[in-house]
Design a protein around this nucleic acid. Sequence first.
DNA 1: GCCCTGGTTGACCGATTGGTACAATTTTTC
DNA 2: GAAAAATTGTACCAATCGGTCAACCAGGGC
Lengths: 203, 203
Amino acid sequence: MKTPRTRIQKKNTEAILEAALDVFSAEGFKGATLDKIAKRAELSKPNLLYYFPSKEAIYVALLGHLMDTWMDPLKEMRDGGDPVEEIVAYVLRKLEMSRKFPRESRLFANEIVRGAPHIRDMIDGPLSELMAEKAALIRGWVKAGQIADVDGYHLIFSIWATTQHYADFDVQVRGLLRPKGDAHFSDAAKFLEGFYRRALRPN
Amino acid sequence: MKTPRTRIQKKNTEAILEAALDVFSAEGFKGATLDKIAKRAELSKPNLLYYFPSKEAIYVALLGHLMDTWMDPLKEMRDGGDPVEEIVAYVLRKLEMSRKFPRESRLFANEIVRGAPHIRDMIDGPLSELMAEKAALIRGWVKAGQIADVDGYHLIFSIWATTQHYADFDVQVRGLLRPKGDAHFSDAAKFLEGFYRRALRPN
DNA sequence: GCCCTGGTTGACCGATTGGTACAATTTTTC
DNA sequence: GAAAAATTGTACCAATCGGTCAACCAGGGC
């Protein structure tokens, strides 16, 4: 279903993708069933397969749409003002993504844990290039003495890990922070901001 | 299968759990099948169900055995020498676990992402208590001015996230670090050690 | 030899699943 | 408003999966 031609097509494909995101992110690819997706989208199962050729096609459509928005925050980390603030801003942007799009984060996590069978070429291609570019940017900052001596790749890994943790391991975080209720995202922001600022401060 | 009574029982239950760890960690609970586990354990499917009452029982047995060893490194973080070194040592211990037991880490990640349906009581119980204890320990270090002002819970979350990332997202890490080959765990150790040391240094 | 207990298996079953056939219906187009 | 195209639900199929069952085997003690 590449170019929706009618209003009803657009509405239904959107409903399907929305429902599929719900189900796939909660149950994984194998755990999700077309019946569950159909029910949540308020469509019949054959109707799903009228808009998408297969279960896998729905999944791939979701992942494809996701990858771009997932890489955007990193693209915005540029050479400009204070490098430390630039990186901290990226951390907070990424954490905000975890807060606003936890389902997308879990879908992505699921795919990677399973060996990324559907997006391997994305990782080896566009993501790899973006990563190399930003790692080089960080290397430049290090050489200029503007931030502490860190490896760009592992710094970015640590940012991904710490921020996505709040989406992917949400149940654990909430379970352990229960007395504190629901305000843990702003606590996390405060912690990460201070943490990265101290760790990156030159000298 | 609580207490293996014969030699052959012990051998087979171990073979089953080993094979199940392989399959469950790679494909998730739903994605794993008894046939795959049986084949990898070189046993017949009914034979599996002679030793374990159900697929879920195998899974639960794995998780139960895992939780303890997973919490051990944190237990060892005690009040003693330099708090910064104590925390850094914990980070490296945890990273070493990711290197040596990636399947266990992925199994755990899978369970949590899915909402931890089988180990929720473990999280709300023993893990919660351990976490509270260690968070209090960290709070003490902060109040004594021995480490920077950080929240204990979020510090521990960040350690879990950064270290487990190398096991759970192994495919992505390897894909992006490809030119560097396989030695990325020692690079990660160096990065994390410097990172946490700088971020935790008092003042 | 014989038995007995632990261990093993091929054949099978019911439930679920992804996907299809097709007729019925609605919407668009002229 | 009728023909054409797009959309939708009912019934169904083949494959797969977790689990069962009755029969069978191994080998040590008598």
